[in-house]
Design a protein around this nucleic acid. Structure first.
Lengths: 137, 137
DNA sequence: CTTTGTGCAAATTCTTTGCACCAAA
DNA sequence: TTTGGTGCAAAGAATTTGCACAAAG
């Protein structure tokens, strides 16, 4: 696995430092759309010297090189996703978990983009209550 | 106009104070999806005592009562929209302006929402470069 | 040896909270 | 006179920046 992640980074012109590998691997293996804090809390025990600055730096780089995407679904925290393919997201108002949603293939994510506008990113966001939180009241 | 805004607030159980009327009127008459700062800068000259706390309070209340919606399109600032109907948004990476996009009526904003999930809000966000910024390089 | 990466500490910035005063019902 | 609204000042919290040291090519 690590070899793949390493190559994945290299293929995007990112030098695979210990920290960068750890961050990228974590995001790929924990598909929870983690926040910076999630990543820090998970990796800090193994890499005690790891700083949030480095996580921020790494995430910025990974986003810039298209290795991951940022989600705007949470106003409070930036969330990161290692799945760069087009899919929708659902965030629960109660537990703040973010789930992936498949976009029905009969549905086309397209609006009337005015002439002259260039689209770089599309996000389809749903908010509400997840199954767990819907049934526990 | 002011009378309509007043009634609009009252109909939602919101007491139409001078500050609330000003905020709501501003949002309705300036469809730029303003930030708190936009609102503050615009209203402060006329209501010098107006505080940001009151703007925050008012916006929270307006959102809670469904008079306006919050946009998650901008990671840095909350943006507010007086148009509560279903439509998409485009944010320019360069000038950070937000425009409304019509959702083509052949397009259905629907994903495979799992059973047990309750949807409260849907947002379709586009990011990229607007016409003005695309042509000025 | 030169460029790039890391991480501590401090600074920034948006938003929230505590609290006292003011206004309306 | 009691409830609700406003706004100042301070606190909170996520992110960014400056800078010095470490590591890699």
């Amino acid at each position: 696995m690590d070899v793949n992640v390493k190559d994945y980074l290299i293929s995007r012109g990112i030098r695979p430092s210990v920290q960068r590998l750890a961050v990228m691997t974590y995001i790929l293996e924990n598909r929870i759309h983690p926040t910076v804090d999630d990543i820090f809390s998970a990796l800090n025990p193994n890499i005690p010297t790891l700083s949030k600055t480095t996580i921020y730096n790494t995430l910025d780089l990974l986003v810039e090189r298209g290795a991951i995407i940022v989600l705007d679904i949470d106003a409070k925290f930036k969330r990161y996703d290692g799945d760069t393919s087009l899919h929708a997201h659902f965030m629960c108002d109660s537990c703040h978990s973010v789930s992936d949603l498949e976009i029905k293939d009969t549905i086309f994510i397209q609006s009337n983009i005015p002439v002259g506008f260039t689209v770089r990113d599309v996000q389809l966001l749903y908010k509400g209550s997840c199954h767990r939180c819907s049934t526990e009241n």
